[in-house]
Design a protein around this nucleic acid. Structure first.
Lengths: 191, 191
DNA sequence: ACCACCATGTAAACGGTTACATGATTAC
DNA sequence: GTAATCATGTAACCGTTTACATGGTGGT
């Protein structure tokens, strides 16, 4: 599954410009799928060439023209086909956890800073989901959207809880390794 | 942060062959970082060229020679530098959640199958973490490794709990959308 | 017989990120 | 005046994934 499929997907909710699609991605998918202009615009161009979306230019005063994309019947069909054929993968790529894994190679202050960063970011992410769901309240919100939002909240909550509970423990343990209670000089300096 | 850095990282635990490094990745990092032979072997070759790891060939009987890599002093220094310079990112890329988000476009049976798949996979992942941590019990397990394993367990537990609790709700809501006109009253309908 | 494990590598394809390029409007 | 928003696109770069290529051992 690539950005093209996601574009077809958001267009089922109504016609949109490339710019608006990016907004959609940020609001709805940001915690489980990322995409920037550099992948959205080429994707849209490709879909248009393939007849899976149609495109009309809309003039605006005091702004450049915008291109509004609509899903075609063929596009809708392909979307469903692709969704049916997509194996349910779920990958995490976390530099944060790599850093944690090698915590003993870092100064304790750096480690504490890293965890504070993540806590702050996750807090923000929870707030963003809350904002989006209350903003979409009353509007057409499918069961899937609700489920995905709830999943995001649950995961972020669990992550925050785990880090908060084990943060002090980890920093303490690493500090002990870095500066052991024994004043014995370690021979591991190695140059 | 790329595969090269991770290779340097696992080599701090002791000398290893490319094959063993891949095993390490699977055991320790699989729930937050992925890498296959196709990225590990070229990474090791590059590190060797740059003098960040050294390499010695070991003959084996009845097996092809293996190349055992060791971290050099320069490699260790670069690793720490890289870890210090790495911003703590944490990205999820989930085709599963995309599928869920567009649940209303899928047949309810498919949706149920998708969730069953994820539940099974996550259960397996929990079991794998348990196996690895008990296997490494008593051995050198750094605080960071324990933290990362615990984090994995916590996240998988939360994911499983959330999906289990909201699975029926979602499938039910989607089934209603898929077949809205059924005048058939539900068995427990009190509304 | 066939599959999994051990063991190493290459090369092409694919897709995403980042930087570049342009330019007007509105709000602080 | 400086930043953010609206609005579109290209091109180089980077790294991963996947498929290919080889080959002996050990288990069901």
């Amino acid at each position: 599954m690539d950005v093209k499929t996601l574009c077809l997907g958001v267009l089922t909710e109504g016609d949109k410009t490339g710019y608006e699609i990016k907004r959609c991605f940020e609001d709805a998918f940001s915690h489980f799928f990322g995409a920037g202009f550099g992948s959205i615009y080429p994707a849209l161009a490709g879909l248009s060439r393939a007849g899976l979306v149609s495109c009309r230019s809309v003039e605006q005063d005091k702004r450049p023209d915008k291109k509004v994309y609509s899903l075609t019947a063929a596009g809708h069909r392909l979307l469903v086909e692709e969704l049916m054929a997509t194996p349910p993968r779920h990958k995490v790529r976390s530099e944060f956890l790599v850093l944690i894994y090698f915590a003993h190679l870092l100064p304790p202050e750096r480690l504490a800073w890293i965890m504070d960063q993540m806590i702050a970011r996750w807090r923000q992410a929870v707030a963003d989901i809350e904002t989006c769901t209350t903003a979409a309240e009353g509007l057409a919100m499918t069961p899937g959207m609700r489920f995905a939002a709830g999943y995001g909240r649950a995961m972020l909550g669990a992550a925050l809880a785990y880090v908060r509970e084990h943060q002090a423990e980890l920093v303490g343990a690493v500090a002990e390794i870095a500066a052991p209670a024994t004043p014995e000089p370690l021979p591991l300096a190695g140059d």
